[in-house]
Design a protein around this nucleic acid. Structure first.
Lengths: 182, 182
DNA sequence: TTCTTGTATTCAAAAAGTTGAATACAAGAT
DNA sequence: ATCTTGTATTCAACTTTTTGAATACAAGAA
């Protein structure tokens, strides 16, 4: 359950509402390495609050539900650092597209090509997005503090990941073109 | 629920027992793109059989439970090809190690370095493993049929993935060394 | 001869994640 | 005047995945 610790880590930087946390995962830095739905985030935040790892300050808003600004507690910070020093396991890969390696030949190669082209575009767009996140860090690379450097490096992981996808799609497209040409 | 279709795809190539399927995911080609536990595989196989996508032939073994050799049915094959032509979404990323981008500065950089070194080694070993899987395909690259080519390309995805990890770890190690040196 | 590894399957509880909503208002666009 | 987008939270049902077992025998190693 690393969502818990990802939330703790995010809130260790600054207090945020559930909505802002969800936005961070959907569009911001969090999207480089963690995916979670809004509902999942709200549920986990409630649980974490009950466990004492975080607290919230309710902002009364006339005519609607309170806005809750969550912040980390000393217990939450301790939990986070305890977790950080533990060895991590590589994430499980579960990529639908890999199934073509097993059964791609059961459908027309034109359908496969179209699909890879579509995926190439998705990853190329994602790549532009993560590159924009890295702009500030890349420009000040030699003066970054460790805190910023770590963030830059994880964004670099996101950049490499998307670059790798684009390059693989190109390799696949080239190889299929060559093979169906023979 | 792409585990279902990954199983269908695997069994579209040859009949296998649950044990063999699990081994394929743990060590074989399946490990390039899909992770599932043995229990999960057995459960899914039972469900798929009840739905009619696969059937099994029970091999009686004296003194122990029957061995079930599963194979795909025409309905299963139809289900698989229907699924294959549908657009796929990029897999969700959930990488524990990414949390250091948010909170790595809360612990000693020496602990971070040790952890990245450990991860580098894990991925370097995994890389050797997937490269071995690709040996036959890489040597016969110009004479592969589409069926083999697809498998090669997905293994290439696995190779690139692990190479990318190793390269990123090196980048991180270099950057931390430089930053802590200043 | 005992221990480990490999073959082979099954059960069950708990945790995590997905899908599909409902509620409510402000601000800007058509 | 209505429609969409953005802010902000909550509920509930369902599916998927993880965790932690139990059972049982063969073959080879120590």
């Amino acid at each position: 359950m690393a969502l818990k610790h990802t939330l703790l880590a995010l809130l260790s930087r600054q207090p945020l509402s559930g909505y802002e946390v969800a936005k961070e995962f959907a569009e911001g830095f969090g999207s480089c390495f963690w995916k979670a739905s809004q509902q999942q985030i709200y549920a986990e935040l409630t649980k974490l609050e009950q466990q004492g790892g975080i607290t919230y300050e309710a902002i009364t808003q006339p005519g609607r539900l309170d806005k809750k600004i969550y912040s980390i507690t000393p217990e939450g910070l301790q939990d986070l650092t305890d977790w950080l020093i533990k060895p991590s396991e590589p994430a499980a890969i579960r990529e639908d597209l890999g199934v073509i390696g097993l059964a791609g030949h059961l459908i027309s190669h034109r359908v496969v090509v179209r699909e890879i082209e579509r995926r190439r575009q998705i990853h190329a767009e994602k790549l532009q997005q993560v590159k924009r996140m890295d702009e500030y860090f890349a420009q000040n690379i030699n003066t970054l503090e460790l805190k910023e450097l770590y963030m830059h490096l994880v964004i670099r992981r996101g950049i490499r990941y998307q670059e790798e996808w684009v390059a693989w799609c190109d390799e696949v497209l080239g190889a299929i073109a060559q093979a169906t040409d023979r």
